[in-house]
Design a protein around this nucleic acid. Structure first.
Lengths: 150, 150
DNA sequence: ATGACTGCAAAATATTTGCATATTC
DNA sequence: GAATATGCAAATATTTTGCAGTCAT
């Protein structure tokens, strides 16, 4: 988690990315949360304090960060990208009911790199889908319905 | 791979899905390939022999199949869903250069079900990103460029 | 002055929805 | 015949592109 501009500048420097104001603020915003925000969520959050920010800049900046390995672009729901600013490799859980994306602390293949079946591996993505802990506990008070014939 | 209508009908019957003509043809098309087609690819392929097919039907049918476990919806590129009609659990490799999505034959967690860290798991998705075997061999004749300062 | 970054608007692409018609059992 | 599926068109959502203006070196 990035707490100030000089830290953010240092991080950008490690990837040879020019530290513009927008980039610093975007890096700060995506690193400041573990909820894997969408473009829309980041925009809504940043526009309050960066009033001129355009979505074009958000898209291009996050693409740049992803290419440089500063953030990870998650494709869990098709149709809407989410970004993960937490640096350590980890897997994800997607709750089908409430839509949350949670970090999982399991080791399977997260760090695997190099070569697999002849292909050069740069990134490993793993995610699990189902019903999250919180939604499960809410279910304890409900009677499940039978699925209808389609 | 599904080779005829009675086989497709039998498969739909196992999930209590009414066997309409469109559903049979869509199941056949998505099961007949290992290249993880997009909606667009399926539409372009099917429209030749099912001239009245609408994309609405394709979307709703594939969503139905995915909910019933007949196909898997892949979210590897955000922005465009792909569908996998191959029934056995397996992971995927996505080539950043040519865009291909290939099946991988590795066992890691593919069959894992049940409970992880309190959440109920229904599906496990894993994919690797990098440069595929074919693109790597094409690279043997090229001189790599230095990346520019951004 | 040059090259790179930003932001607005428009375009392109992907997905969902409303509703009338057609089909299945 | 009742319930469901289909398909067209329109609406919505997401992402990309073109280009003019701005900023940094």
């Amino acid at each position: 988690m990035i707490t100030n501009f000089s830290e953010a500048k240092a991080i950008l420097a490690t990837r040879s990315i020019k530290p513009t104001y927008q980039r610093l603020r975007i890096l700060e915003a995506v690193s400041d949360t573990r909820d894997h925000p969408t473009i829309k969520a980041l925009y809504d959050k940043l526009i309050r304090t960066v009033p001129t920010l355009s979505k074009t800049t958000l898209y291009s900046t996050l693409e740049l960060f992803a290419a440089k390995g500063l953030v990870t672009r998650l494709s869990i729901d098709a149709g809407e990208a989410r970004y993960d600013g937490f640096p350590a490799p980890h897997h994800h859980f997607h709750c089908e009911r409430c839509g949350a994306i949670l970090d999982l602390d399991i080791a399977c293949a997260t760090g695997r790199r190099g070569e697999v079946q002849g292909h050069a591996i740069k990134e490993v993505h793993g995610y699990f889908k189902g019903i999250c802990k919180d939604c499960l506990s809410r279910d304890h008070h409900k009677i499940p319905r039978r699925s209808s014939h389609v």
